[in-house]
Design a protein around this nucleic acid. Structure first.
Lengths: 233, 233
DNA sequence: CGTTCATTTGAGTGAAGTCAAACCGAGTGG
DNA sequence: CCACTCGGTTTGACTTCACTCAAATGAACG
């Protein structure tokens, strides 16, 4: 059906710890309109929007990574997903955002009017259906993360995270080099662990010669089979 | 806008640990067609569908509770949501189910053709938009559960769960009596805990005189303020 | 070269897990 | 009506994985 739907299914089956909503793009002119919003540049750690802000826009990531997260009163934070280029954030039906969206590194996003999008979708079944599929894919990815956080050990979570990153962002053809465009604290808050546990687990994977880490931000997967085993099912 | 949307928002803001997708019902005749599927009776512990089954139907819960869960190879299980009467399960775009749906107690579901639903939605923007909103509400609920499982202590998770159950299922007017139509193991698998921890935590709440438990399955909330505090933010 | 921020490593603690046994209520059949 | 079973729950004793606190190391930058 849609050109994008295959990419979505691939993501979902990959058991993603990251967003999987790339279904809105379309070649129809009636939709392209929403692809023409202004570009906004975001600094590392800058917010795209905050918990409680009115939901005026939907954003498509053009460059960089945006972390969607919930901050609890005492400083604990859960990251819900990392949104990569092609992903949309801010979809939904609520009038206000209920999460923070913060860049983990310098990024660019395209701003699309939420009201215009919703209005057009109420007339255009094709667009509404793409919205449905985009959110469904995101739901599947969030459920996969929930399974990981609820049931798996630190090692399983981290191995699974690296594999999902690899499947999602590595150059096609070379799945062994994975860039980590976020701090350890972001990974920790995604996986429901602490910075120290993430660091120790990465170290363990290095001493096992399953991965190699270059300058802290680039992971080379040396033994993808072993890594897959370590990720559990 | 839609009559159901208010119910959805109430659920989402309630920080639900349970499903929140009651957006499909409509008074339009073109949609009512999908509300006329056959009723299927489900025994306690019986499956509505299994992980891997072709996704031929969407189901609306009419009675009882259905647990959506993922089973890992070694027996660990994560429950994704409890679906209550009015909720839909089996929505999405994948050709196969990727979760188990199992009754926690005797239940009835209405079976609706997934193909017919999707086909109708590709013509009817209103239906497609309702699908979008239903899945969006479910996404918000799943995210809330992820935050709880990823960041909160056993006590916080259980207190939050009891409150969300109370908001969702207690008789309007008396939010203090909550029926638990599932085993301790189901609660444990939803919250990412063990049976023993769930049991111990319930016992602690009882000795604190925050709740009272009748015959193991009926919780009386004695001090809802204290319970709310214990649930954290 | 010093400052700052992020990461790693170490030592000790604790919340939740495991294993095991006791308890309880609902059926069932003698 | 009681004894027995059976699934589910509770409680107890002990263990462990991940957390906390603290210090050392490393990388980036003016």
């Amino acid at each position: 059906m849609l050109g994008a739907s295959q990419a979505i299914e691939a993501n979902v089956y990959g058991g993603a710890h990251i967003s999987a909503s790339a279904a809105l793009a379309s070649s129809e002119p009636s939709v392209d309109r929403f692809e023409r919003g202004t570009i906004r540049r975001i600094e590392a750690k800058e917010h795209v929007f905050c918990d409680g802000d009115p939901r005026t826009h939907v954003f498509r990531i053009e460059e960089g990574v945006i972390a969607l997260s919930k901050l609890l009163g005492d400083g604990r934070r859960q990251i819900i997903e990392f949104a990569y280029p092609g992903d949309y954030i801010g979809l939904g039906t609520l009038r206000e955002h209920i999460f923070d969206a913060q860049a983990t590194c310098a990024a660019k996003v395209r701003c699309l009017s939420a009201a215009a999008l919703e209005q057009e979708a109420s007339r255009d079944a094709g667009l509404a259906l793409r919205l449905y599929k985009a959110v469904s894919a995101e739901l599947a990815a969030t459920r996969a993360l929930l399974v990981s956080v609820g049931q798996q050990s630190a090692m399983e979570r981290l191995a699974g995270f690296l594999l999902s990153l690899s499947a999602r962002t590595a150059n096609p053809g070379d799945e062994t080099v994975v860039k980590l465009p976020m701090r350890r604290s972001d990974i920790a808050d995604l996986l429901g662990l602490t910075i120290e546990t993430v660091s120790r687990t990465i170290t363990k994977l290095r001493t096992m010669h399953v991965i190699d880490v270059v300058r802290g931000t680039e992971v080379h997967i040396l033994d993808i089979e072993r890594l897959t085993e370590l990720a559990g099912q």
